[in-house]
Design a protein around this nucleic acid. Structure first.
Lengths: 223, 223
DNA sequence: TAGATTGTTAATCGATTAACAATC
DNA sequence: TAGATTGTTAATCGATTAACAATC
């Protein structure tokens, strides 16, 4: 075949979200000096079904696994990173230089994932022209121009919920095609533009429900 | 029936995560002065299936909907907030007072969701005894005692990945039963303890994949 | 060779959607 | 009443899991 597999296959959303976990296990295996890792071992480490892991990995592996041995660790790491686009650094902008925005800018780990925040935007005058972790904060009025000029494709929203939609609109004007939204609001965007909600409220809901169910169980025992 | 419905029903993970979105739409409707909202209207706003919305809401609504009118807005808000535990403030601790940790501490919105961060912990000596947004940073050595004494049930982890597991272990020692994990690591905890991963790497994966697929489509047109 | 592991095809499971009856 | 909307039961869809064949 001419192309590597990673170009041909399409992973489901769920499978895609498991990839970072596979990478974590693989990196660990690499450090331990293993050359091959079996799907069974990965599944065990992550408490996942073995066949699930095998299928997920088969979809991105260029070499395939070797019976009796497993998958070649270094090669598989590279395949996944390739598939995930970790090797191509994508320039990104962030809007909302509050505490959360600043934290994301300072988070160096994102570089590992192929994301580089090259500029921040805010409406607050006191923030503008400041530098956060080497990244300049600019006025919102420059957003569209900046994005078009640098061909930015990813935007991060860390503004209060009521401001999020108008920020998203500007981003779309600037040609951005994928938005990472930390504001707890549903955004409306044209087809072709992806909104990935980082849904802190939903996560909190999971925590609360767990505690509630536990407490109810405890109460029902007492009854 | 003796108990309100919200105590009897169990929402799937997905349904639960939709609740904050329903709340958002309902609050908006409340501001607009509507007394009733139909499932169809909510579904439209959130681009969800109408029956899905109806089922989700039926599971938490104490009154049920009224044919021809819809659901009573204020009542439904209260039901959902009740179900989600927004009304009972849960004391929470946070470990890892770096930039992300500080951002979460300063984020006032969490109060709305029934979460109050009452203490932060860190190993860095320079951080200890500092106050962040009115929350004291303490030494890790006090974590277990503090949690047991105050009966803390929720812990937030914002430390580097390699430190996350040992932090989780301490939290479990301190009697914590739900962990919100921002470190990109799979944590191992006893049964009965929930780990909610806030999976930034997985979200980034979604963004990257979207851009990759778009670019591939564009290329295939040119070919 | 025998055994471990991959890869694939079929069965299961759970969530979403569709169809329809009930109600104000 | 007629029509809009809820609520429920059945059908569909997609992801996960199980069973089994292929391979080193």
């Amino acid at each position: 075949m001419a192309r590597p597999r990673s170009q041909d296959t399409y992973l489901t959303k769920q499978a895609l979200q498991r990839m970072p976990y596979y990478l974590q296990v693989l990196h660990q295996a690499e450090e331990e000096g293993r050359e091959f890792v079996s799907a069974a071992k990965i599944a065990q480490d992550l408490q996942l079904n073995e066949v699930l892991v095998r299928k997920d990995i088969a979809a991105v592996s260029s070499t395939g696994g070797r019976p009796k041995a497993g998958f070649p660790v270094r090669c598989l790491i590279s395949d996944i990173e390739q598939y995930m686009g970790y090797h191509t650094l994508k320039e990104t902008i962030l809007v909302g230089a509050g505490s959360l925005g600043q934290a994301l800018i300072k988070n160096r780990e994102f570089q590992m994932y192929g994301i580089s925040i090259v500029a921040a935007f805010d409406t607050k005058k006191s923030m503008i022209h400041k530098s956060i972790g080497g990244v300049e904060v600019m006025s919102m009025t420059h957003l569209v121009d900046f994005c078009l000029k640098r061909n930015i494709q990813i935007g991060i929203i860390t503004v209060p919920p009521e401001a999020a939609q108008s920020v998203a609109d500007r981003m779309v004007d600037g040609g951005i095609r994928a938005i990472w939204n930390f504001a707890m609001t549903k955004l409306t965007v044209p087809t072709g533009v992806l909104v990935q909600n980082e849904d802190l409220a939903s996560s909190l809901a999971m925590l609360s429900q767990h505690l509630r169910l536990e407490n109810e169980m405890r109460n029902s025992w007492i009854e």
